[in-house]
Amino acid sequence: MADDANPTTADDQSTAGSYVTPGTEFTRDDRYIATRITADGRDGYPVEAGRYRLVVSRACPWANRAIIVRRLLGLEDAISMGVTGPTHDARSWTFDLDPDGLDPVLGIPRLQDAFLARFPDYERGITVPAFVDETTGQVVTNDYAQMTLDMSTEWSAHHREGAPDLYPEALRAEIDEVALAVFKDVNNGVYRCGFAGSQEAYDAAYARLFSRLDWLSERLSTQRYLVGDTITEADVRLFTTLVRFDAVYHGHFKCNRSKLTEMPVLWDYARDLFQTPGFGDTIDFQHIKDHYYVVQTDINPTSIVPQGPDLSGWLAPHDRAALGGRPFGDGTPPGPVRAGEEVDPQHTADAMRG
């Protein structure tokens, strides 16, 4: 499945603070390391438990996809995970959450080090999520759109018992179609609003975003999930934007026709997923707000992080089960979050305090 030329998100750019070009429409860098980790190892990187480290930031919606998919499929034993801090400087995401500021497995202070280990003259954005080969310390790929699909299809031998099929073969064409529309108008649409360099560019992006959200509301008014009757890759991709909508996109990115809480169908849908194991337990609202409001200084030059909004409603009941559907199909929910990979409980308590 392609994501509109696999665009790089502004969350992941290596130059902190510079995102808006006056007078222009926001565009994205599509230059990714296209190497894949596959069951047959055709790109030189075979699927191998314990060999690769998934480097993520909980702030980034694109990395959040990989965190969710890894957890739903039960790949924790096969793929280790390193978590950067929520902010980055002009060079790279950094491991400032770890003791001495070093990733405990890779032994590096910056994700950039893994990119330069493989490509000494690397000049593109240092992006998350990224797979790093623990045996060499070199980055393998940062192609986030392909990474989650490969976790579903290439890593199946290492899935947990009862893992859901997030990319069922019979539904792939429809998943691809829906996910691409969601990407162009919603996942990318919020950035086209927030980083618009002209009124005309903003107005067009704003109209396109909310037209698609209205379309999604209509689609989800009669079915529990985006494609079929189970959670798929398409739901993961929409969720990571919706969960950030009121916290950052509504105000910071000027996506302010409606809050998510004012779009009843989408609000119920997002809460249904948030309360499903593997989704809400990956979300760190404090990291999300810190990233957008601190790093993106051309939008928020003071780097002041707002106290609001009230996020306690994420735990409120919803009626989505009345639409039927089986979240995990013939599978089962994932177990508790692995020790050491939990979201900071104080961050969760603060967000849900109301």
Rank of each mutant, 00 (worst) to 15 (best):
S198Y: 04
D3R: 10
L315R: 10
F131K: 06
L116N: 05
D30L: 00
L213G: 08
A179F: 00
P22S: 13
D310S: 09
Y269F: 15
T141K: 07
R51C: 08
P277A: 11
A10D: 10
G101S: 04
D89N: 14
P61F: 12
L323E: 08
I67F: 03
Y206G: 00
D344P: 03
F119K: 15
M151F: 15
P109A: 15
A2V: 14
G82K: 11
W267R: 11
D165Q: 03
R172A: 06
Q199L: 11
G308P: 05
R237S: 12
P306Y: 13
T84Y: 03
R70E: 09
A117Y: 05
E200I: 13
V265E: 07
G308F: 01
T332I: 14
R257M: 07
Y292W: 13
D319Q: 13
R71G: 02
E169F: 05
L149N: 12
Q296E: 09
A90P: 03
V56Y: 00
P333D: 06
P317S: 09
Y249L: 07
Q275I: 13
L238I: 04
C60E: 04
D350R: 12
E123I: 02
L323A: 08
F328L: 06
A351D: 02
H287L: 03
D98G: 05
A66R: 08
R91M: 06
G162Q: 13
